[in-house]
C-alpha cells in the first residue's frame, strides 16, 4: 500500500481549529498504519475503549461538524479521514474481523521487517506472485459475511449453494485442463461465498495455472503479430504475458529487445531488461542488452557499468566488448 503524503498546511483563517487541522494532516499521512493506531488505542484495547476512541475522534472528524463552513482544502480530507476512521472502528469492534485484521497486520509488519533486512543483501528474493487478497480485504469480506448472517439466512444459503455449483464446475474445468474457465468459475464461487477457505486455496492454485495458460496464449499471439511485423501489438501481448509470468527473465528480455529495437520505447525496454537482470543476475547477455539500451538512451555511465558486468560474467562476449570500446 502506498503512503499518500498530504502537503496541506495548517491555515488559521479556516473555520477549523488549527489543532484539529494538525491532527487531520497527521491522520491523513498515516492512513496505512495499523487500525488501532488510527484510533489511537493500544492493540489489545477492549471494545469499550475502541468505541470511546471512535466517538471522540468522530466528534472532531465528522463532516457534519463543518457543515457549510469554510474548511478549504480540508473538506475532502475530512471525508477520507472519517471513512477510514469508520473502517477501523467497524473492523476492530467485531471480534471476528478484528482477529483477522490484526493477524494480517502482524504478518505485514513481519514481512516489512524482513524486507528491510533483505535490502542489505545483494540477491533480491524472487517473489513470484503477490497475494491476491490483502488482510483488510479478507476482513471486509468476512465482515460482509457476518452482517449477512444477521437476517439473511436463507439468502446466504442460496449464495452458498451457488458458490458450490460454480466451484464444482470450476474444478471440473480444471481437471480437463481448461484453466481459464476454471479460474473464472472458482472466482465466482469465491464472490458468492467469500469466507470459504477451500475456495480461496483452490483459487490460488487454479489461478496460477490460469496465469500460465494466459501467458502461453499471449506469447502465441505475440509471435503471430511479430511474424507480421506488427511490433506494437506483439510487444503489448508480450508485456502482458510478463505480467502473468513475473519470474520469467527470458520473456522479459525478449520484450525488452522489441521495445528497444522495434518500437523505440527505451524506458519500457530499460525497465524490462533490468527486471530480467534482477531475476537472473548471472546472465551476461542480459546485462549486455541492458547496457545497449542505456547506450541508446545516452546514459553512458549506466551503459558502461552494465557492459562491464556482462564482460566480467562472460569474458568471451565480443559484442559487449565492441560496444564498450565504442563508448
Amino acid at each position: 500500500m502506498k503512503t499518500s503524503v498530504v502537503d496541506l498546511e495548517v491555515d488559521p483563517a479556516l473555520d477549523l481549529d488549527p489543532k484539529i487541522q494538525q491532527e487531520l494532516i497527521e491522520f491523513a499521512n498515516g492512513l496505512d498504519r495499523p487500525y488501532h493506531e488510527l484510533l489511537g488505542v493500544a492493540s489489545e484495547a477492549d471494545s469499550r475503549a475502541i468505541k470511546k476512541a471512535y466517538f471522540q475522534k468522530a466528534k472532531r472528524f465528522h463532516p457534519d461538524r463543518y457543515f457549510r463552513k469554510n474548511v478549504g482544502e480540508f473538506l475532502p480530507m475530512l471525508d477520507t479521514c472519517f471513512k477510514k476512521l469508520l473502517e477501523a472502528y467497524e473492523l476492530l469492534s467485531d471480534p471476528a474481523t478484528r482477529e483477522e485484521v490484526q493477524r494480517g497486520e502482524k504478518a505485514r509488519a513481519a514481512k516489512a521487517a524482513r524486507g528491510r533486512a533483505g535490502e542489505a543483501s545483494t540477491t533480491p528474493s524472487p517473489e513470484p506472485t503477490k497475494p491476491r487478497i490483502s488482510g483488510t480485504e479478507a476482513a471486509r469480506r468476512l465482515r460482509r459475511r457476518m452482517s449477512g448472517l444477521q437476517g439473511h439466512h436463507k439468502a446466504k444459503q442460496e449464495r452458498r449453494q451457488k458458490a458450490k455449483t460454480f466451484f464444482e464446475s470450476g474444478m471440473a474445468a480444471f481437471r480437463s485442463d481448461r484453466w481459464l474457465e476454471a479460474a473464472g468459475s472458482v472466482r465466482l464461487a469465491m464472490a458468492f461465498d467469500p469466507a470459504n477457505e477451500v475456495y480461496r486455496e483452490e483459487f490460488a492454485k487454479v489461478q496460477c495455472k490460469a496465469h500460465e495458460e494466459r501467458a502461453k496464449q499471449l506469447t502465441r499471439s505475440a509471435e503471430a503479430a511479430l511474424d507480421l511485423r506488427n511490433y506494437q501489438d506483439g510487444f503489448e501481448a508480450l508485456e502482458e504475458a510478463c505480467h502473468y509470468r513475473p519470474f520469467d527473465a527470458d520473456l522479459a528480455i525478449r520484450a525488452a529487445k522489441i521495445a528497444w529495437q522495434a518500437i523505440g520505447d527505451l524506458r519500457k525496454a530499460k525497465d524490462l531488461a533490468s527486471s530480467a537482470c534482477e531475476l537472473e543476475p548471472e546472465r551476461a547477455e542480459y546485462h549486455r542488452i541492458l547496457g545497449q539500451i542505456y547506450k541508446a538512451a545516452d546514459l553512458t555511465a549506466n551503459a558502461k557499468r552494465e557492459l562491464e558486468a556482462a564482460i566480467r560474467l562472460d569474458p568471451k562476449d565480443k559484442e559487449a566488448k565492441a560496444e564498450l570500446r565504442a563508448l
Binding site: 465528522h62 463532516p63 457534519d64 457543515f67 471525508d79 481459464l180 474457465e181 479460474a183 473464472g184 468459475s185 472466482r187 465466482l188 490460469a210 494466459r214
Partner: peptide, 14 residues
Amino acid sequence: RGEPEVDVSFDIDA
C-alpha cells in the same frame, strides 16, 4: 470470462 477485474466502488457522502 472471469479474467478481467472490475473494481466497483460505492461512496455515500455526509
